Amino acid sequence: MTHFYNRIVNYFNNLDIEGIFDLVISRGVQLIFTIILLSLLRWFAERLVSIYFNRNNISEKAKQRHLTLKKLLDNIIQYTYYFFLGYSILAILGVPIATLLAGAGVASVAIGLGAQGFVSDMVNGLFILLERQYDVGDMVTINDYEGFITNIGMRTTVLQSVTGAVHFIPNRNILEVTNESRCPRRTEVDLVIDPDVNMEKLNAVIHETVEASLPNHDLTEAPEYYGVCRDLDGRLVYRVRFMCINDHQWDVETYYYELLTNALAKNGIEQPIVLSTKQVTTR
């Protein structure tokens, strides 16, 4: 017991406390300096990206493209920052990184397989950007998911559905893309009418009301008056078709339904109240 005690005492007596303290202080200062330096470089890079892409003299479509590239560059800066931060910390602490990687064995294989998926994500993401398949803010359908693109990263594309659900889709899994934001969108206003209505008067009221609302900056083309037809439920309707700026179709539809319904009521043209697809009454 005494021998064991003496060995412990000799061990602590032989410790270079001053050297250990100096080493801790030195490594600590290096760590703090490295973290501050890398953080400043990251802030500076993100600031340059933000200044470049937040210009005001660009078109609305160009803004979407700029937002897409900005988010991607921010993503690259973040990955680069964490890589160099982790590498620098290990190097300062004296961890032999090259030796660890060379002797990792099975771990190296696992890392290689993981890296293979990462590289595949990056390559697919690069082709998505080069081919401009979609930008941030676009309404798309990717595989079986539908929603708005909120972020395009090195590994994943983030899509938010109209219900608020957020989908993180690895770029290598993106097989089919339907972009609904590239061209004007069509919307139709179907006004249910009575078979006994004065068609000439109805047609005149609708034409005058719609024409009086023009120009409408949400429309890309002049409205098309399809006239009297039947909808999918077999109801007799008067149909007007509008081609709208993308994502404005719902506003256009709501606006013209209200406008035309009020115009018909003001001119004494009654619209049937549909109780079901097989039962119709007149208001």
Rank of each mutant, 00 (worst) to 15 (best):
L126I: 15
E60P: 00
I92T: 07
G105Q: 10
F148L: 10
L90I: 11
V24N: 02
D138G: 03
G147S: 01
D22M: 00
F21C: 00
Q78W: 07
N143R: 04
S39K: 03
W43E: 01
A91S: 14
A104D: 07
D138I: 03
Y82H: 11
A107F: 14
N124C: 04
L129T: 02
L67K: 12
F21D: 06
V95L: 02
I97A: 06
L113C: 13
K71Q: 13
A98G: 03
L23Q: 04
Q133E: 11
A45N: 11
I142K: 01
Y81M: 05
V119S: 07
G105R: 11
G103S: 13
D138Y: 06
M122E: 04
F21N: 08
L93W: 09
G117E: 12
I128S: 05
L31A: 09
I32T: 12
V29M: 10
N56P: 10
R132F: 06
L73E: 08
N124M: 06
L129D: 12
Y134M: 12
Q133V: 13
I58M: 10
M139C: 05
I89C: 06
H66T: 07
I142D: 02
G114K: 12
F127Y: 10
A104R: 08
E131H: 02
Y52C: 06
R47E: 13
K70T: 14
Q116A: 15
L130N: 11
R55V: 03
P96A: 07
K61I: 12
G28C: 05
G137H: 06
F53A: 03
N124E: 11
A104H: 06
G94V: 08
A45M: 12
T34I: 04
R47N: 14
Y81K: 03
V109Q: 02
S108I: 11
D74M: 10
S39P: 00
P96V: 03
G125C: 03
F84I: 01
V123P: 07
K63A: 14
L101I: 14
L31Y: 04
S50P: 06
R55F: 00
Y134V: 03
G114M: 14
Y79S: 09
L113N: 13
N56W: 05
W43A: 13
V140R: 00
A115I: 13
L93M: 12
I92A: 10
M122Q: 03
I92P: 03
F148M: 08
I111R: 00
L90C: 11
G117V: 02
G105N: 10
I111V: 15
I25Q: 00
Q78D: 14
S39W: 07
D22H: 03
G94I: 02
I77Q: 09
Q64T: 15
G117L: 12
K70H: 09
L37N: 09
V24D: 04
V123T: 01
L38M: 07
M122C: 09
A45T: 00
V123W: 02
I58D: 05
L67C: 00
A62Y: 01
I32L: 11
N57F: 12
G94D: 10
S26H: 08
K71N: 11
A91Y: 13
K61E: 04
K71H: 07
L38I: 03
N151L: 08
Q116N: 12
